[in-house]
Amino acid sequence: QIFVKTLMGKTITLEVELSDTIDNVKAKIQDKEGIPPDQQRLIFAGKQLEDGRTLSDYNIQKESTLHLVL
């Protein structure tokens, strides 16, 4: 699992595989929060994550926290 922190300070827990693409992750956030993926920007280690890449491409591990910017 990974964590996604919103600017409102809310933390969302997502069940993911490290082979999941950023697209997949955004879809899971949409399922939980109702935010359309095209409005989501995910940040990790100061970098904006690109849709076609996977979590492992960015060296994101289990229990990592991503930041969601709208």
Rank of each mutant, 00 (worst) to 15 (best):
P36A: 04
Q30N: 04
I35G: 10
K32F: 10
L7I: 14
G34R: 06
I60E: 11
E33I: 02
I43V: 10
N24Q: 13
D57V: 10
P36R: 03
T21G: 06
D23L: 04
L68S: 03
K5F: 14
D57Q: 08
S64H: 09
Q1C: 04
E17Y: 05
F3A: 06
D38R: 02
L7S: 15
Q48T: 14
D31P: 14
I12H: 14
G9W: 03
I2N: 00
Q39H: 03
L14Q: 01
R41S: 12
F3V: 12
A27R: 03
D57W: 12
T21K: 12
Q1H: 04
S19A: 04
E50S: 10
V25W: 01
G9Q: 11
M8F: 04
H67E: 15
K47D: 15
I60Q: 04
L7K: 15
L18I: 05
K10S: 06
I29E: 00
T11N: 14
Q1M: 03
K62R: 08
P36V: 05
I12M: 09
S56C: 11
S19R: 05
T54A: 13
Q61H: 03
Q48S: 02
T54R: 07
E63Y: 06
K62D: 12
G9A: 09
G52C: 06
K10R: 06
T21N: 08
K10E: 10
I22R: 01
R41A: 12
S56I: 05
Q30G: 11
T21W: 04
Q48V: 03
K28V: 09
Q1Y: 14
G34W: 02
T54H: 08
P36L: 05
R53N: 07
T13Y: 09
L55Q: 00
Q39W: 03
T13L: 12
I43M: 13
I43W: 13
Q48M: 02
A45G: 08
N59A: 10
Q39E: 12
M8V: 13
H67T: 01
P36I: 12
T54K: 11
T65F: 13
A27W: 10
T11F: 06
L49E: 00
R41M: 13
V16F: 08
M8S: 14
T21A: 03
T13D: 12
T65C: 12
L55I: 09
D31K: 01
E33L: 01
Q30P: 11
K47V: 15
D57L: 07
E15W: 02
E17I: 05
V16A: 08
S64E: 12
I35P: 07
N24L: 03
I60C: 09
K26Y: 09
V25G: 00
I29G: 00
L42K: 00
S64N: 10
I29N: 00
G52P: 10
L42Q: 00
D31R: 05
D51K: 03
L18N: 02
Q39T: 11
D51E: 01
V69T: 07
Q61I: 13
K26W: 15
L42V: 10
I60V: 07
V4F: 09
L70R: 02
V4H: 00
E17N: 07
L49Y: 01
D38Q: 04
G46C: 05
M8L: 05
D51P: 09
D57P: 00
F44G: 14
T6R: 02
T54P: 06
L18D: 06
Q40P: 01
S56W: 01
I35C: 07
K47M: 09
S19V: 03
D20C: 07
D20W: 11
R41H: 14
L18S: 02
S19K: 03
Q61S: 11
V25H: 00
Y58Q: 15
L66D: 15
D38K: 01
